[in-house]
Design a protein around this nucleic acid. Structure first.
Lengths: 341, 341
DNA sequence: CTGAAAGCGCTAACAT
DNA sequence: ATGTTAGCGCTTTCAG
């Protein structure tokens, strides 16, 4: 039961009676090899169960490792999970493997993860940056040719590619939809921290829609939370105001879950709702949930193709690519405004 | 703009005027070092932006790499995403990093991923095995001491640890709940392929509940699908039967989404539903969705602790650990049975 | 077509 | 407290 040593190139070479380099040649289809040696080598490889050590190979070749480092806030969040799958699908035929981790939106954890990825010499680094994480230290890595792409939010202190949703326009459209259906007092439930890029942008879209309709911005209608339970509480508080909102706008998918759960729990079916980001079962709710849908597949695909282009020598200026959102009207935005008393 | 070479240990050593080994010692807190050299080294490290090459280190040290290889069917599926996050949380303080990939339940893709992970000398291999993927070839890796854990389903051809839900008992309880509320014709919408372990087990639980209640098993009430759209169609077909079911049991979370969507779309609110695996917004549906909840956090945690124990020298027999499910009654299982005509 | 030697970046095992 | 040598498993380079 002792841990057997794994076979190495040299073991295979010895078995066949050739040099290590010959085995290497056969396996990598580098240089020529006689049909006979090829077969012998392949047979020995199977017999010994040899699998080349990719780390050793990489070390010698010197280039980056065939991995992509990906930092997202939460592996369990389906939005980021979908982004990740899309990235994977896009890079698969390039032979790249995903190294992943959750930052929990904590800059220290983000940094720990990126450092690990850099120490592993990833080919590409992709990060959903946390508030408070500086990225200036990544400059030297950019200089070595490492493509860095920020996803969902731009990074800070580093000019590099980023891929974001049309947060401001999307939120504007969602709120305008509510206004078009007669709502004047519209609550905003956003995620925390308040400085989060997506929250700021979406709040800006919310405000611009209000302004367009000559509705005064009322700070007391803006609430915050950082998880579903918090969003439930935030929604409840807004609706308990003396002059409560008749409609709510959810700043992201988790906030949407909280708002919908709270309305269902408390039986407030008359409150109109529009959410930023689609959620499953939105269709099956009563009323069905109107959303500003993001396109996580496209976000992932864009991030990946951008990074691959950089890897292939694209030296053009850093870009911020905005992936459009789409208002999907399903009904919850049209809940009637209560008659004035 | 030329790709600068990254600094190496030797560069740092040269900068300070010491040997490479000394730098190594300082960085790894191996052996002693005078306060002065330590400081000089650290300064040089910062100045040059040196980051040790983990691959080179690993190759020299010879042990496995500090990574965990994790193969799941779909990075975007929140069930597996939650399992992954739980694994990550459990191994974080051991310094292990996740190497992940989606198999799409395709044995070839599963194999390609595991091979890549093995070539990277992962410390632990965790796989949600696909139907048709043989695992006998992993035996030699087990023999070298590599912990292998199968998640959600047992592997085939290899005696190793696995962590699964109490599929059979859970499905039994869910179906029994429907029977207790008067349902006699209960449809089963399961995922594909039919040979999938979880599907078989859950179907067995369904059948045992029927049998317990002396209800004949009717094959025509069993439908299959492999995605949400398919589940919608499958549910529709079952309900269009001449003698349709009055209740449906969903074989997993995706099937649940399909069934609920179809019932909402077609306005068949009278059909009772119980789903295997919880879904978000289940609470907010009308009626709220009764589920047999799995515990993905516990599954991930158990898989991780089991693997870590193996890494720490636990040589006891391979175990299959069953994580209990829990029936969460929310209402959808109590939809009344239509009066007989 | 094949092999020998050198070296990738790092650390183990001895020196000193 | 520090340095030297060797070598991890592989590939590059240069000879044959």
């Amino acid at each position: 039961m002792a841990a057997n040593r794994r076979p190495t190139l040299a073991d295979v070479a010895r078995e066949v009676g050739v040099s290590a380099k010959t085995v290497s040649r056969v396996l990598n289809e580098d240089g020529p090899a006689s049909a006979q040696t090829r077969e012998q080598v392949l047979a020995a490889v199977t017999k010994l169960g040899f699998q080349p050590n990719l780390m050793a190979r990489n070390i010698r070749v010197g280039g980056p490792d065939t991995t992509i480092g990906l930092v997202i806030p939460d592996l369990a969040n389906p939005f980021f999970g979908t982004v990740a799958r899309s990235i994977e699908d896009t890079v698969r035929d390039r032979g790249l493997t995903l190294l992943m981790g959750s930052s929990a939106d904590d800059p220290d954890r983000e940094r720990a993860l990126t450092d690990k990825f850099l120490a592993r010499r990833v080919s590409i680094l992709m990060v959903v940056p946390s508030v408070g994480a500086g990225h200036a230290r990544l400059k030297t890595h950019r200089a070595t040719g490492l493509p860095i792409v920020f996803i969902d939010r731009p990074g800070s202190g580093l000019a590099t590619d980023s891929v974001v949703s049309s947060n401001r326009a999307g939120a504007h459209d969602g709120v305008a939809h509510l206004i078009a259906h007669g709502h004047q007092r519209i609550g905003f439930v956003g995620d925390l921290p308040a400085k989060l890029y997506t929250r700021r942008e979406r709040l800006a879209g919310y405000r611009s829609a209000l302004q367009e309709a000559d509705i005064d911005y009322d700070r007391s209608l803006v609430a915050n939370a950082h998880d579903q339970k918090g969003a439930e509480a935030a929604a409840g508080q807004l609706l308990d105001l003396a002059d409560p909102p008749t409609a709510l706008f959810a700043g992201n998918n988790i906030m949407a879950l909280g708002i919908v759960a709270e309305l269902a729990r408390s039986g407030r079916k008359h409150v109109a709702v529009v959410a930023f980001d689609d959620v499953s079962l939105a269709d099956a709710l009563e009323p069905a949930l109107t959303v500003v849908a993001q396109d996580p597949e496209e976000i992932g695909r864009t991030a990946a193709t951008t990074a691959l282009a950089r890897l292939d020598g694209d030296h053009s200026r850093a870009r911020t690519i905005t992936v459009p959102t789409r208002l999907i009207v399903r009904g919850s935005g049209e809940q009637p405004v209560p008659a004035h008393t």
